[in-house]
Computed example of a mutant assay.
Amino acid sequence: LEVLQPLLAGESTSHAGAQYRVNATFKVHDAPSKPPVIVAALGPRMLNIAGRLAEGTITWMTGAKTLANHIVPTITQAAAAAGRPTPRVVAGLPVVLTDKPDAARATIAEQLALYGQLPSYKAMLEREGASGPGDIALVGDEATLLKELQSLRDAGVTDLNAAVMELEPGQFDRTLEFLASEMQA
């Protein structure tokens, strides 16, 4: 990140670390501005690095309670200590607009079971008090999804990376249309 950030800003960088050395300049002609760097981070050390050196973090399989009590405060404190602006927090979650939430959660639990076994995601699910991905997915009718989206906003989430799932015909388009209309509101 110490090498990447200056390069993306069109500046020269010189870095001599334990693993590699870099002396480089990188310029993109007609680039309007430096793109934000968002680092996938869940644990305290990575969140600290992301807060100090990047514009934010992106999570996956992390529920609203864990975002509010762990992710957002940890990265925000690191950014503040480094004199950086409040970071972006992108929450990645499965989303399904449905009138059959129990069936949808069961299918998500089955299809995404691997995430409940990987140590970093398992730790986030445990913090949430969830037994697996089906428990933290955003699933339900419009009113339920609105409440869940609001709980993410209340937790400090700035962006949603919606993994829209189609568990029955037409569901993907309906979910996407709902999310698009909610984002415009």
Rank of each mutant, 00 (worst) to 15 (best):
E142Q: 12
L1A: 15
L67S: 01
K65L: 03
A162P: 12
K34M: 08
A162D: 04
G134K: 06
L160F: 00
T13N: 01
H29L: 08
Q171H: 11
D154W: 02
G17S: 00
R84F: 00
G140H: 08
Q77F: 07
R105Y: 09
A54Y: 04
P6I: 04
D154L: 00
E55L: 00
R84I: 00
G17A: 00
Q19L: 13
Q77G: 11
M183R: 15
D135R: 01
G129Y: 08
M46A: 14
V22C: 02
L4P: 12
R174V: 01
L149F: 15
K27F: 03
L1V: 12
Q171M: 10
T66R: 14
D141K: 05
A31F: 03
V96R: 09
V37F: 02
V89K: 02
A123Y: 05
L4T: 07
H70F: 14
V28E: 09
E2C: 09
A106W: 01
N23T: 14
P101S: 07
G156D: 06
L7I: 05
L149I: 08
A16S: 10
D173R: 15
A81F: 00
I71N: 07
T59Y: 01
E142G: 06
V139K: 04
R88D: 14
L53N: 11
R21S: 07
D141S: 09
N69Q: 15
E55T: 03
T76W: 11
N48V: 07
K147N: 15
S131H: 13
E177A: 15
A16V: 05
S131V: 13
E110P: 09
L114Y: 05
M124A: 13
L47Q: 09
L152T: 08
M46K: 11
I49A: 12
Q5D: 15
V39W: 06
R105C: 05
Q184R: 11
T175D: 11
S151K: 09
A9F: 10
T144S: 15
D30C: 08
T98D: 07
